[in-house]
Design a protein around this nucleic acid. Structure first.
Length: 564
RNA sequence: UGUCUCGUGGUGUAACUGGCAACACGUCUGACUCUGAAUCAGAAGAGUCCAGGUUCGACCCCUGGCGAGACAACCA
């Protein structure tokens, strides 16, 4: 971000509310002036662009103020978690460019400590073992407008609670029969304070602790204490945890341990996509997309496969800012960040997506010549490459019009246009099939214009990309588009489903002609197909069959103007 | 009829903590151009949810409305 653009008198960038809180804390000498954050995913799914915002926030804030960031897996529910997810999460965070060094932690690392804390609360008379069933407990909880009723087990003696809790741990009881609950206030206007469950019995294997435990702490009980144990100063989370904060603070206070501060921010929403884990999972399970890393998915791995760069995503996170109000960011901003990055770095190349055959009638039959093409006009150091030119070549179907409108700078009957880096060509004849569709153009080239300029100073407006049939290669290209047709896919009428808003054309697969340079492109490599957009080599590619994903189109003010 | 949080151009985010609203994206012009891209120059677009109040002065403070979101898993 260019500081010099900021016009404030002090030339000082404005701070978001998180930075303001941190700076205030730093001024007041809170936490020995430390800043220590954490990114705490539950390993039960893949990370998405919304997590990227949180990751950038947590690591970014710590970095800005000379602090550290922990990666902590919030693995308190063994029934939903798996190592597959912890691996993917680590890969994604690393790919985004962040380093948690040796601070890879797990809530499960603290199970013993958490148990001790629980015993302490029981001893203080602040927790009790409850034998209400799920339905009963729910009934006792009351509603949002009416107070709850106390559990009949609420006033057991400390000794009895201690005994029962130990027996819960020993596996003497069945799942669902006993819970450990915090004794707070069944009449609290905050539902979360109505004696929340701290431990439940779950006889399933944990991906790290195996069968060592059969009681597991809930999020509310584990999270704050984990933060405390790790010495987290600012525990940043999304808005839906706002109502949890009093409970977070309550545990810390009753336990008399180090108190981190929970601060909530508004989660990211993007137009034309869904972000909830549940819906994303559904898209995968119902084969609406081809896995978590389908390039149409808003997951980090999906974006990566689509061709997004970590830099573009980090810059996006920076650009959108943070606040506490609900927001919906336009995907076009994400795309803008992508283009901004790739424009500077991507190798240019020519590829014809919808080929129209062109025969240069006055060009020698078997001749192939090599022409110089610039690899990246934004970066001279990237040099030049040779592009083969021959008698038969392909141009984009949309670069020819039989009856062109006034300002059509491309090819038309009798018109002259430039083939980029090659020659001026004039269209003399239009060949059609029985259906009357244009299938081939016969053109003549002007040998004097080699390289793309006319010695007589003659001008042509545009430059068309092209690929020569000789030496050109065919490749599969996946034209990716937004997954949904509605800005807000979740906005549906009664009885309807967000899946009805799926974009049927979110992926079109075509065969394109590419210049031979692309022959050796490796999976993950990114290119700009001149005039067409940014494309990335997909992992489905083989040495003989290249597959490209369209990451984003280029801006097209001609198309926008409504052309013909 | 509960509690908490939020409400600034189309979309986001700011406004030095009270001094008549800025930046980015998007949109629209024009220049340049061998990518109708990029780049460059410029324009339009909000008077800050509403109504009162305090004040010389309010997007910032107070009161009352209205609207939006979150909360009633032994999920996180």
């Amino acid at each position: 971000m260019s500081e010099e653009n900021i016009k404030s008198p002090e030339n000082r960038p404005s701070l978001n509310f998180l930075q303001q809180i941190i700076e205030e804390d730093l001024r007041n000498g809170k936490n020995e002036k430390r800043v220590h954050t954490r990114f705490p995913p539950e390993p039960n799914g893949y990370l998405h662009i919304g997590h990227a915002k949180s990751i950038c926030l947590n690591f970014g804030l710590a970095k800005q103020y000379g602090g550290k960031t922990n990666l902590r897996f919030d693995d308190t529910n063994p029934t939903k978690e798996d190592v597959e997810y912890v691996d993917s999460i680590k890969e994604d965070v690393r790919w985004l460019g962040f380093d948690w060094e040796d601070r890879e932690f797990y809530a499960s690392d603290y199970f013993e400590k958490l148990y001790e804390y629980a015993v302490k609360l029981i001893t203080k008379g602040k927790a009790y073992v409850c034998q209400l069933s799920g339905e009963e407990m729910s009934a006792h909880r009351g509603t949002v407008t009416t107070p709850g009723k106390e559990s009949p087990y609420r006033n057991r003696s400390v000794a009895e609670n201690l005994d029962l809790f130990a027996r819960m741990r020993n596996g003497e009881f069945k799942e669902g029969t006993h819970t450990l609950r915090a004794k707070i206030d069944m009449a609290s206007p905050n539902m979360l304070m109505r004696d929340p469950v701290m431990y439940r019995i779950l006889k399933s294997e944990h991906h790290r602790t195996g069968m060592q435990w059969c009681i597991y702490p809930t999020y509310d009980y584990a999270h704050g204490q984990s933060d405390s144990i790790e010495g987290i100063t600012h525990s940043i989370c999304t808005l839906e945890f706002e109502v949890h904060r009093p409970l977070y603070d309550w545990f810390i206070k009753e336990l008399e341990i180090y108190a981190p501060q929970q601060i909530e921010f508004a989660r990211l929403n993007l137009t034309y996509t869904v972000m909830s884990k549940r819906k994303l999972l559904q898209l995968v399970q119902e084969n609406i997309v081809n896995g978590w890393d389908d390039p149409r998915m808003p997951t980090i791995c999906g974006l990566r496969r689509r061709g997004f760069t970590p830099e573009s995503i980090r810059n996006f996170a920076e650009t959108i800012g943070v606040a506490k109000r609900d927001n919906v960011i336009d995907v076009s901003l994400l795309e803008h960040c992508l283009r901004e990055d790739l424009n500077k770095r991507a190798q240019r190349v020519m590829a014809v997506l919808r080929p129209l055959k062109v025969v240069i009638t006055n060009y020698p039959e078997n001749q192939v010549e090599e022409l110089d093409a610039v690899n990246n006009p934004e970066d001279e150091s990237m040099g030049k490459r040779k592009v083969p030119f021959s008698k038969i070549l392909y141009i984009e179907q949309s670069d020819f019009m039989e009856n062109p409108p006034k300002k059509f700078f491309r090819l038309a009957p009798g018109a002259e246009a430039r083939l980029r880096y090659a020659y001026f060509v004039r269209c003399n004849e239009v060949i059609k099939n029985e259906a009357g569709e244009v299938v081939e153009l016969h053109c003549t080239y002007d040998p004097e214009t080699r390289g793309g300029n006319a010695p007589d100073g003659r001008k042509v407006q545009g430059a068309l990309h092209w690929v020569s049939e000789a030496r050109g290669i065919k490749a599969e290209v996946r034209l990716l588009d937004r997954l949904f047709i509605k800005e807000n896919p979740e906005e549906v009428e009664e009885g309807h489903d967000y899946k009805e808003n799926l974009n049927p054309a979110s992926m079109e697969t075509i065969t394109a002609w590419c210049e031979p340079y692309l022959q050796d492109a490796q999976a993950g490599e990114k290119f700009q197909f001149e005039r067409m957009g940014y494309f990335c080599v997909d992992k489905d590619s083989t040495s003989t069959h290249k597959v490209f994903n369209r990451t984003a189109t280029l801006k097209d003010s001609f198309a926008k103007a409504g052309k013909a």
